[in-house]
Design a protein around this nucleic acid. Structure first.
Lengths: 194, 194
DNA sequence: TGTATTATCGAACAAACGTTCGATAACGTC
DNA sequence: GACGTTATCGAACGTTTGTTCGATAATACA
């Protein structure tokens, strides 16, 4: 074939670092400076190669990350050393976690877990849960319900024809409020240690 | 004072949703369409209000998220007596999930939990743990250790004079590798549902 | 060696960008 | 009611943007 690029992979890495730091893409001119291309047309060419590989996309003259932009290579060094099948090993860069836990910021809020009625689902007292406001909960979802003026986290279940909320701990009773008021669906949870 | 904005909070919410979806900010004109402002100068004014509150920043004519952009409202679990028109309870404060979980990005990586040997500590298979590289682990810390060439998550404990790592599940044995190699300390964990 | 391919450059360009400014209207305060 | 404040608008402006094109140089292949 023809001439090879210095290394699109290296360029991409720089772009990813930049994005991880600032959460925006620089202009073509600035990308040129960043990766070492002197002409914006070279940058355009480079970007169109990335586009073809689905690393980035453009819409309305604006770059944005594509489906593969946040992919991370496995850490070769450890694995080469004969190491584990515990292979997923990602640098916790920037705001990757937030993006995983929150899809619709405007509908999302956080709530502290009290008590251990959902211990069977891995929710411990003090955990923070990520709740998306919605009334489209389905059977099996973990939901936040409003019972006696307080938020309660339980699993939504069906009993004959009606919905009830079940704890995941045998020491607690099934709740059958009528009407059952669902505040939102639990889409994630997190906690800190130490 | 003078005239009040329709609601900067509502505008901000739309911006956040947009950003969560596309990972870029739209142009001023597009922001206008998005939130319902007809003039780009109104958008500029709105954005400068957000800037003052540190929700966004600009550099080189480009918008980027500010420190508070990823904050989510943290709700109080008890709701004031009376009926909660579930949409509008006052959020107590904003909490940024990433900042909460990751204190030292350069030393931090993520790992997927395999197996249920730490189920007693609330770590379920599939959970992602946040690991901070360190060899300053103390007794009682949950740590990632290197045992037989594989990562293992266990609790660091002392047995007589030596350190061992203990599962939090009676079906698993205490491990006593010698030497015991600690990769890092588990500082947090998270998972998603649904 | 000759030919095809393509990464890069430099320059030129129209469209889009964010900024600025004056005018207006809505609102709070006195 | 008069005044001060400010959110919004519309329009105008200079700059920067990403795009396009032709020329050049590096590489692969026959």
């Amino acid at each position: 074939m023809g001439r090879q690029p210095v290394s699109d992979a290296a360029y991409l890495a720089k772009l990813q670092d930049y994005y991880a730091r600032y959460r925006v893409f620089p202009s073509y001119a600035a990308i040129g400076e960043l990766v070492g291309l002197k002409s914006t047309s070279s940058v355009a060419a480079f970007l169109s190669r990335l586009k073809a590989e689905r690393y980035i996309e453009t819409a309305a003259r604006r770059l944005r990350p594509g489906p593969r932009f946040f992919e991370r290579p496995l850490m070769e060094s450890r694995i080469a050393a004969g190491l584990p099948s515990a292979a997923y090993d990602a640098p916790a860069e920037g705001l990757a976690i937030d993006a995983q836990l929150v899809k619709r910021p405007s509908l999302t809020f956080l709530l502290q877990v009290k008590g251990d009625s959902m211990i069977g689902a891995g929710l411990m007292p003090g955990d923070t849960i990520v709740v998306e406001k919605s009334n489209a909960a389905k059977e099996g979802d973990i939901v936040v319900a409003l019972v006696d003026g307080a938020y309660t986290v339980k699993r939504l279940a069906r009993e004959n024809r009606r919905f009830v909320v079940k704890p995941e701990n045998k020491a607690f009773p099934v709740l059958r409020p009528d009407p059952l008021e669902i505040v939102g669906i639990v889409t994630g949870s997190f906690r800190t240690y130490r």
